[in-house]
Nucleic acid binder design. Structure first.
Lengths: 131, 131
DNA sequence: GTAAAGTATGAACTATAGTTTAATGTCAAC
DNA sequence: GTTGACATTAAACTATAGTTCATACTTTAC
């Protein structure tokens, strides 16, 4: 899979794919080189890029992801280290999920308020300020 | 309320508060000046900063917020405009929630993998659900 | 009345996440 | 054998969201 094909497969610009490689988020495991020096990517590359995008959606930065991947792939860690690491990450994720859900409620309430406004406008009620 | 008090009230650095002012996210409506040129903030400032933080949680950039607040306060937006804006934001939030849940599943699967390893190694109890 | 703490300003600096550019190499088609 | 589409690199550039710095003025504490 040439870089162009990978870019199309995951809908990420070629320049960004090379940037991720510079940032060590893509390594030798994700591609090899042809004689002409062109990169040839494998399926792991697709998965890694999808994981990066999922992580970004979740508000995890590239360096956080990098650190996480490093820690995972470093076998200096005992199972307990790993468990602690993942439990910590999980707690962070749960926190973020909660926050995000709150913001969703907030946005939803604004939408409802707008809809109520419509019904109320007919009766000329004064509109209170939104939050 | 001096800038220090505001900073404490909303847990945002003083430098960031001044930065938001530079970015026009805080205006004359949110503070006045003493004779010595010190800013004195009002409750609206607290609310505005909380709104900014909530917006950021929802993935709204400062310039988006700036444009949105301007339009909102100039009454340039119809209710349908507002509805469309919030619906778009809602879709983005749902996206982020999905991404976050994917990452949680991924982390959970890693933890389960570790625990299964343990079960085989040490006859440990199966792992109860975390969180 | 001097030092420490707080406030002000503008400008430079930082980090993150890329994008763009320039210069060059490769390959397939005509 | 030249054109065009693709590939390579390093380096410069951009935008966002701040932070830090240098310098200076004000207020509070001792």
């Amino acid at each position: 899979m040439y870089i162009k094909d990978l870019a199309q497969a995951v809908d990420i610009p070629i320049s960004t794919i090379r940037y991720y490689e510079r940032k060590k988020l893509l390594t030798e495991e994700h591609f090899s080189r042809l004689d002409n020096n062109y990169r040839i990517y494998n399926e792991q590359a697709v998965e890694r890029l999808q994981l990066i995008r999922a992580g970004q959606q979740a508000g995890i930065t590239l360096s956080e992801m990098q650190a996480y991947i490093d820690d995972w792939e470093d076998n200096n860690l005992t199972d307990d280290d790993k468990r602690m690491f993942f439990n910590a990450k999980l707690a962070e994720i749960e926190d973020r999920l909660l926050g995000l859900q709150q913001v969703r409620e907030y946005v939803l309430s604004k939408l409802e308020h707008l809809d109520n406004e419509d019904t109320q406008l007919a009766f000329n009620h004064p509109c209170e300020d939104i939050k």
